[in-house]
């Protein structure tokens, strides 16, 4: 069982040759393949992460832009509303003023016409009362 002979050194040499051979046909090419794959995965991952970052940055920027634009549009709408309101108020005031003026003028005219009417009526009253008096008392008395 424990008989040592030339098997031992020859087996050692054979093993070293096997290690050298496997180094050439197994460890080196497959190791390279594994390392290259690891590199590829690493670079692809980094690239993907960069792209993701970029996309997120863009999305954020778009959101900011959107918010900004919305704020601007709201401001514009508010401004326009305010302006319109002001304009309407102004116009209403103007129209009211005009109406007031027309009303006043109409009243004035009415007053004038009334005065005139009164005046003509007074003169008529005079002549009429004169006539009535003539009729009643007679013309010689007057």
């Amino acid at each position: 069982m424990f008989d040592f002979d030339a098997t031992l050194p020859l087996m050692a040499i054979q093993f070293l040759l096997l290690a050298a051979l496997l180094n050439v046909v197994f460890y080196k090419p497959l190791g390279q393949a594994i390392d290259q794959r690891a590199d590829y995965i690493r670079t692809t991952k980094v690239e993907a992460r960069e792209r993701l970052d970029k996309a997120e940055r863009l999305a954020k920027q778009y959101e900011q832009d959107l918010a900004e634009t919305r704020r601007q549009s709201q401001a514009i709408v508010a401004e326009a509303q305010a302006e319109a309101q002001k304009k309407a108020a102004q116009q209403i005031a103007e129209v009211q003023q005009e109406a007031q003026a027309q009303l006043q003028q109409a009243q004035k005219e009415l007053e004038q016409q009334k005065q005139e009417a009164f005046r003509s009526l007074e003169s008529q009253v005079d002549t009429l009362s004169h006539q009535i008096l003539e009729k009643l008392v007679g013309s010689q008395m007057v």
């Binding site: 002979d5 098997t7 046909v25 197994f26 090419p29 497959l30 393949a33």
Partner: peptide, 30 residues
Amino acid sequence: KLHGQVFLTSWVVIAILVVASLAATRNIQR
């Protein structure tokens, strides 16, 4: 003096290893 049977089986083992390595690295894919 050599122990022939040891070498015979070890050659089989070595052949399996070498052939498997060669077959595996013949066309390396990602």
